[in-house]
């Protein structure tokens, strides 16, 4: 069996296990699993923005909020079907993302990062506050979007909904992975590594940056909408600035340059708080753990946990095959 086929089979086994194992779990645990999958989607949105074009954002949850509140307002306020509201919500998030990205025309990355904080605080402390635009934020009574059914099968059960969000995550990963390995990926990496050089070879840096912002915000908006339906109510507190900061930290711990950090982050969010409660520490300590890990890691392992682990495994397998007297290059190629 060739290396590519072997890794494909391995991937299929992992996906099947991830899809089937929660069948054995409680409803509550499956809810947490769905949350983790949604967080993976958000981490993926960070990977697109930070990993692909090198732009830090502190308003990913604001994009998520745009998706969530659009879906909430359309479903609960106007009686739309989920399947119509979802694309509108994602489109609204994409539009917001492009709008936020427009200052990229003239600002350096760090100043744009400052701007995203302003956007995040503007969203959760003005836009979503009762009285500003109740037709969007729901006002004093939060929206209660209900779970839809797909091809006649209701997604109201926790396992059905988990499978639904998992399928969406897999599709999103596939799309982003295709972008990364294709022409788009090369263009975006060129933009990240040197905007000047990219512009010199004729790339429209601004347009590509805006596209990355749009895609990232769209993914975040999708995640926000899925989270709204998963919880069954939409409130501003779930989408504030600190959530965005936590997300950025989580994605950076895993390593923003690789798509694999999205599932890794999901696993971390499911089992991280669990481990903490296992050693009789409250799960409210989890952000402290992420922050502490990030500090230690940036100083010692700046490339991120996933990338480092993969490099370590690669080095180990090269060492092992070299010891067996095989050509190390062959062992490297079959990965």
């Amino acid at each position: 069996m060739s290396g590519a086929a072997r890794s494909r089979v391995g991937l299929a086994v992992v996906v099947a296990a991830v899809a089937l194992l929660p069948a054995l779990e409680s409803d509550f645990q499956r809810g947490l699993d769905s949350d983790a999958v949604i967080i993976a989607l958000l981490v993926l949105s960070v990977v697109v923005l930070t990993g692909f074009v090198g732009q830090i954002s502190f308003c990913q949850y604001s994009f998520a909020a745009i998706g969530a509140f659009t879906v909430g307002a359309l479903m609960d306020g106007h009686g739309w079907s989920f399947w119509l509201a979802l694309p509108v919500g994602v489109a609204a998030a994409v539009l917001t993302g492009v709008l936020v990205g427009i200052p990229a025309l003239r600002l350096s990355g760090l100043l744009l990062a400052v701007l995203t904080i302003a956007v995040a605080l503007f969203t959760d402390r003005f836009l979503l506050v009762t009285g500003t635009w109740d037709g969007f934020s729901g006002g004093a009574v939060p929206w209660h979007p209900e779970r839809p059914s797909l091809l006649g099968a209701p997604l109201t059960g926790s396992y059905a909904y988990y499978l639904f969000v998992l399928a969406i995550l897999c599709a999103a990963i596939l799309v982003v992975w295709n972008l990364r390995t294709g022409k788009t990926g090369r263009v975006l990496r060129a933009v990240r590594d040197s905007e000047l050089a990219a512009a010199t070879v004729g790339l429209d840096v601004t347009a590509w940056k805006l596209a990355a912002f749009g895609l990232s915000a769209g993914l975040a908006g999708l995640a926000g909408a899925l989270l709204a339906v998963r919880i069954g109510s939409v409130s501003p507190g779930s989408y504030d600035f600190l959530h965005s900061v936590q997300l950025t930290a989580l994605a950076t711990v895993m390593g923003v340059s690789t798509i694999a950090s999205a599932p890794a982050a999901a696993v971390g969010t499911v089992f991280g708080p669990e481990l903490l409660s296992g050693i009789s520490v409250s799960s409210t300590w989890f952000p402290l753990l992420i922050g502490g890990t990030l500090i230690v890691q940036l100083v010692l392992v700046p490339e991120g946990a996933v990338v480092r682990t993969r490099n370590d495994i690669a080095r180990l397998s090269r060492l092992l095959s070299a010891r067996r007297g095989r050509d190390p290059a062959v062992a490297g190629a079959s990965r």
């Binding site: 950025t248 930290a249 950076t252 409210t284 300590w285 952000p287 402290l288 992420i290 502490g292 500090i295």
Partner: peptide, 21 residues
Amino acid sequence: PLTKVAVTIAWLLVLQTAAGL
């Protein structure tokens, strides 16, 4: 610079969570 920014964000998260606790 991105790495240095990330480290200050990590401090933000640590101080914020610690103070909350």
